[in-house]
């Protein structure tokens, strides 16, 4: 069993001697903006429930909510002040996921983007996991077509990555293939339901439990395929991929010996 040492500062070897984290004012501004957005989310929900126009129009309201949620999570990533290694790996993982999604778009359900996102969240933390997921949606849709579904896919995959980070807290950072696989499998359905939520809120009338369940029933087989695909991918790829990621995020410490001792090897 591989162990992740979970310490937020660990992934930043290049900062080891760069002094304290700069930009305190910037960080607090970001945090203030994040709290403001969270408040705005609740306010929008409240207005929607109270039937205040135009927030009672759920097609508009849900889009606003999705965008606000994305903003909140983006700001969380910003506050972390990550170093070059994290910024680079998030970009690279997003590119892999998007490439996989585009290349294997022809085989429905059989593409490891969801699993990749969950795993990234698990090893790199909630924030990075979220960003990998959100960027996969943003990037692959440049080629598969942007549309009103884009923010929702960003939310879906972003939350999948976020949940991966939460799961790793549960296991104190130990890589466990089975829970990861189950989470990926669950996300096969959850992702579908989030997309259904968008479709339902925007285009189905009346908005009732029955019509939502009907929408979900319509997509059941597709979601099931996605979920089994995720399960299969994670059962096979979890161990080797987690090892690669762990090796990547391993901290490179250095020791200065001065003029003194000679290292014995």
């Amino acid at each position: 069993m591989v162990t992740i040492r979970r310490n937020r500062g660990e992934l930043r070897p290049e900062q080891s001697l760069a002094g304290p984290v700069a930009g305190g004012a910037r960080a607090s501004a970001l945090r203030a903006l994040r709290y403001l957005s969270i408040f705005a989310m609740f306010f929008v929900i409240y207005l929607g429930v109270r039937d205040v126009v135009p927030f009672s129009r759920w097609s508009v309201n849900s889009l606003l909510l999705a965008l606000l949620l994305l903003l909140v999570l983006f700001l969380r990533y910003e506050e972390k002040d990550f170093g070059a290694r994290e910024v680079a790996v998030v970009g690279a993982l997003a590119a892999v996921g998007a490439a996989g999604r585009v290349i294997f778009a022809a085989v429905p359900g059989l593409q490891p983007a969801t699993f990749l996102v969950v795993l990234s969240g698990y090893v790199l933390g909630e924030e990075s996991g979220f960003l990998v997921g959100a960027l996969i949606a943003l990037l692959s849709n440049i080629f598969l077509g942007h549309g009103p579904w884009t923010p929702w896919q960003m939310v879906g995959w972003g939350l999948a990555g976020f949940s991966g980070g939460l799961l790793s807290r549960l296991f104190r950072g130990k890589v466990r293939a089975l829970p990861l696989a189950l989470l990926a499998c669950v996300w096969g359905f959850l992702f579908g339901w989030i997309m259904n939520l968008w479709f339902w809120l925007s285009f189905i009338y009346p908005l009732s439990w029955a019509s939502y369940v009907a929408t979900c029933a319509a997509s059941f087989w597709f979601d099931l395929l996605h979920a089994t695909g995720n399960l299969a991918f994670s059962l096979v790829l979890c161990r080797p991929m987690a090892e690669m990621l762990l090796r990547y995020r391993e901290r490179m410490e250095f020791r200065y010996l001065g003029d003194g001792e000679w290292l014995r090897t």
């Binding site: 001697l17 901290r251 020791r255």
Partner: peptide, 23 residues
């Protein structure tokens, strides 16, 4: 050694800066 880690012995000065302490 700042990005790659490892162990270093001796002195290195570049452009009047000590490599080990300045990063």
């Amino acid at each position: 050694p700042h990005f790659h880690g490892g162990c270093l012995r001796g002195k290195a000065r570049v452009c009047d800066m000590d490599v080990v302490s300045s990063g």
